[in-house]
Nucleic acid binder design. Sequence first.
DNA 1: CGCAGCCGTTCGGATTCCGTGAGGAGCCGC
DNA 2: GCGGCTCCTCACGGAATCCGAACGGCTGCG
Lengths: 234, 234
Amino acid sequence: MKILVADDDPQIVAALRILLRAHGYDVVVARDGATALDAAAHEHPDLVLLDLGMPGLSGVQVIRAIRGWSTVPILVVSGRTESYDKVAALDTGADDYVTKPFLADELTARIRALTRRNASGTEEPVVLFGGVEVDLARHRVTRTADGAETVVRLTPTEWAFLEVLVRNPDRLVTRQYLLDHVWGPGHASDSGYLRLYMSQLRKKLEATPSDPVHLLTDPGLGYRFVPGREPAVG
Amino acid sequence: MKILVADDDPQIVAALRILLRAHGYDVVVARDGATALDAAAHEHPDLVLLDLGMPGLSGVQVIRAIRGWSTVPILVVSGRTESYDKVAALDTGADDYVTKPFLADELTARIRALTRRNASGTEEPVVLFGGVEVDLARHRVTRTADGAETVVRLTPTEWAFLEVLVRNPDRLVTRQYLLDHVWGPGHASDSGYLRLYMSQLRKKLEATPSDPVHLLTDPGLGYRFVPGREPAVG
DNA sequence: CGCAGCCGTTCGGATTCCGTGAGGAGCCGC
DNA sequence: GCGGCTCCTCACGGAATCCGAACGGCTGCG
């Protein structure tokens, strides 16, 4: 069990490190928002303990960024007791909110409550299909062709597009849904971005772009990501 | 989204009912531990709001009993502020713990945080008939013939037509109703699309298109989808 | 027996939709 | 300012879809 502690107060960090180590957790520390994001992506923590008052990015920004690619439990620790702050953090994607000062017993109990769920539902943030590996946590796509493994470079829009598809495997993804989730709500003009980016994704990911196997079109409706063959045979 | 409120204080129950209804939740109430357990089992709530101080069973006993068969999120509301009570509740299986008095904003935010995760797991209605499987959530139709399972390709109009029929099993679907829901209101001219698309659906889905078993005609009125009894088939 | 009404089916043209290439506008680091 | 990258508009060939029209089979009725 690994916990990422994101806090800029050395004393609190030291106290938390001792407390958490005593309860058997591995501890990783980040002292500002940018470092926290980096650590959340590369260290694969089982839980993020986030202080809202860090320099750099605001706490809500950090939460939103993490939630962009990860479902790791986020426990916010903050000196702010206003309900507005709590609501903002929770609605942005935090799972729990504890105000300072807090009791060690309660904090560890809440950590146990948050990590309990993911312990049973082991989620695999890596998707494989046809020689392509999509690592949602690391924002990274690698492709294996002719025995050589290469990293595929995707633009932000291409990544957002692919991510929406990959998060809905075997499902029809409506044009409208794609527009809302990639370009934000309000972009009702489907004047052809979708076809363009799908074309580029197929060029980068499919073995035969003109005859796609995993990134399919449902004519008149939208697109669909099909991971590949299932072990079950009909 | 249904919430079970387990509390014995009529005033709090009344306040919570109003608050939760205003946020669009269905509310079910239980006034003691035994009733709460019964409601948790039979009402299938999406979240349990549990007061620790109810008569009868203790709060921890209620939590343990629910966790015996269900993973529904449990949010404890209690007047006890001792960390011992919090730790006991959380470690028994509660997911969050709020002390009275609490702010409405914070409570609803915590409810949203707890129900967020399960929101993605929406039910997938699947309809089976005569070797054909219609998965409405995935927008997908598969057909099993001669032991081989193949995906049936449907055009947007064909899919809309089939969806209307499948959503009204064993019921007569009027020609007018079909025209309104497939081609949009205003298309009163029944100059023969219906016969055409029904023909194509039967060709793609029925074992013997000329003698349909599940996609039937009610002469002079409209069409009817009859699932029929499906024996357990491997 | 002839006929009319309804239904299922086939055929083909007009339209829409899809994939893809080329190129300009905006943004960022240097 | 400048080069590189990304995003988006526009245009075109090709394919699929939609829908009008027409034909044959069936049933009930006079």
